[in-house]
Simulated scan of single mutants.
Amino acid sequence: MATLPQFVPVDTLQDLEYPQREAAFFYGLFLRGHSADQLRRDIEVPSAVLAKWHREAQRDPQLKDVFERMVDYRRHVLAIFDALVGSDGQPQRVQ
């Protein structure tokens, strides 16, 4: 079956250290007129993907930690994005 390199390139694992960078990317898209709700959906890990990762982790327990780290990372990106955009979909002022 699939092995770790097919799922998560080494560069991706290193990129998981910088959720601020990815949140800034999505914030830039937001400022260019993309919907905050659509961007949130793009940041979140879809339930179908979560289910697939869960099945793969059951087949290969070494993947469990990687998948958990990726989900935590996406949640962190979403939290940063939400802090920048706010619940009303408007950019937040920096004070």
Rank of each mutant, 00 (worst) to 15 (best):
T3W: 08
A2L: 14
G33M: 07
R21L: 13
A24R: 07
V71R: 09
Q38N: 12
P46E: 01
A24N: 09
D15W: 14
L4F: 13
S87C: 06
A51V: 04
V71Q: 05
A57S: 12
A2F: 15
L84C: 03
I80M: 11
R59I: 11
L50S: 10
F25D: 10
V94N: 13
F26S: 01
Q95R: 09
M70E: 09
R21T: 09
E22Y: 09
D15H: 14
F25S: 08
D42H: 06
V66N: 10
R69L: 13
F67A: 05
R59E: 15
V66I: 14
V66W: 15
V10Q: 12
R55M: 11
G86S: 03
L50P: 01
D15G: 10
Q14N: 14
A51F: 06
D88F: 15
A79N: 03
P5F: 04
A83Q: 12
F81I: 02
R75A: 08
A2N: 13
Q92A: 10
L16R: 03
P91T: 00
V8H: 11
S47E: 09
D11G: 08
L31R: 14
I80C: 08
D37M: 06
A79Y: 02
A23C: 11
L78V: 02
V8S: 07
A23P: 02
E56H: 02
I80A: 05
V8F: 14
Q62N: 11
P19S: 11
Q92S: 11
L31K: 15
A79K: 06
W53C: 01
Q95C: 07
A48Q: 07
V85W: 04
L16P: 04
Q14H: 15
Y27M: 04
E68W: 03
D72P: 09
I80N: 03
